[in-house]
Design a protein around this nucleic acid. Sequence first.
DNA 1: GCCGTTTTCGGCCCGACTGTTTTCAGTCG
Length: 569
Amino acid sequence: MASNAQATEIFRTIADLLDLLGEQFKPEAYRRAARSIESLTEDLGAVAARHELRSIPGVGEAIAEKIEEYLSTGSIGYYERLKREVPAGLVELMRLPGLGPKTARRFWVELGVEGPAELRDAIAAGRLVGVKGFGEKKIEQIRAALATAAAGPAASGRRPIEEVYPVAHELVTALRERTGADRVEVAGSFRRARETVGDLDILVTTQAPARAFEVFSAHPLVGQVKMRGDTKETVLLTDGLQVDLRVVQPEEFGAALQYFTGSKDHNVRLRSLARDRGLKVNEYGVFRGEGRVAGVTEEEVYASLGLAYIPPELREDRGEIEAAAKGTLPPLVVESDLHGDLHIHLSSAASAEELERLVEEARALRYSYLTVVVAGERLDGTPWSLPAPIRTRLEELSRPGLWLARGLETGPGPIPDELGGIPFDVRILRPTNGAPALDGGTPPWALLAHVGSSVAPDAAALARWVEAARSARAAIEVGPGAERLDSTAARQAREAGVTIHVPTGLGSPDAATVRHVALGFARRAGAVADAVANARADPPVSAGGTGGGPRRTSSPDRPRSRPATKRTP
DNA sequence: GCCGTTTTCGGCCCGACTGTTTTCAGTCG
């Protein structure tokens, strides 16, 4: 999806350039279009070929034309003109923390400064002293921002959600236990389960805000306090992640949680819907005139606008508001829907104790099946397998109530001779480059895994794999890490009717992170329990290869059946 | 520049915080 990413970046830059020219509403319009293009599940070229560019939210006549121009010529005349008009260095300046378009423009117009290097020189030469609006502190702040930018490129970019997850968990736990806060929730893109997180927004209700700030600032993860007001504190963690802590009143908590969860586009739509109904929504509640209509809970906020509750993962203005109004939102998969895992790896040196711990974990979660990969091919194509005693132990531990299936993980071709004698129940496909078509003669595939490890994640390759999974009736694995699908790709799989697999992380130290993040991605993709392979009561597996199939007696083997599935509450 | 279950024109979120101010501008989220 290289061209989508490039188009996104071009429109973002156009927005910045227009900002620098002092334009009022155009910049936001271009940013809106950029956000939509970024989250597209298919290539812009494909949308253009169907003449459906205008159906992309935020893309109207003018931007659609510019996309066409970009697709056919590789550049956009309007963009090139703007770049000639405004020095490129100004965009860098306005992207520095604490600086914005107004300030960058003033440097340009009043001081002739056209970029970071010139600004540094101007400050060193004392040219900012005495300029209206620039006191000692402001100048120092700019100097510091320039130094940080020069030291390393983008020390404060967005980071993967799985990296932030344990940190968020720790901070929330500490706030709950040590500050006397009543309610503590993380909002923002973290709560929406976006793949990347820019910062953390934590909301608390407490009678003693000052104490909450005090305790929070003293947490070992916190590096420095950036600012502290009456209701809000901003800190930087030792690893550079920014965390905002906001204190809100209990009667406002739902409204604040809704407001700070976003997304921006979702909230804009919500507010305009409210306006149409004579209501006003802000972070303090929903109001008719002076009277508060809602605010304690999010459910109440949505209900007051005539909407069903919208799960955070869907709040991106991609049609969820219309669906909530009509009552057609899907009941998204929840953690208690998961009945097992089709893809568990143990190391080739695994011990029986490791296997037993794994089984204990599965029992504790009331899972009814696990596929443990017992044999397969390494990335270099050489075969490996779990030691025979471990495979035997696996069979011994399998019983009605918890079926331990044996997984065989290979490329798409015939099973290599070396692995031919090893019995298995589930065949897991590890894609290799250039061979997307699954061999129809082999047993049905249960799972397409490690997709990102062997194919470039561009739209065309992804489309091939989704089609391969669809025709083989295999599930595709979703979750954190380069080897699994992100939520955008998962949405594409869903749209093609391909089921997805949510890894549970069982047996790994970061199991909770893997499971929650993967579930979040599945929910972002709009998956209901029926769309998740391991949310089915019986494993979506048929007897495979030389294996014997399910060795349990409690329920008959039902290949490819769609057993009754627990409903989302 | 986009958008419309009251609109094809006239809107487009708005409050907290900082720094430089004497009443406000800019940035951020």
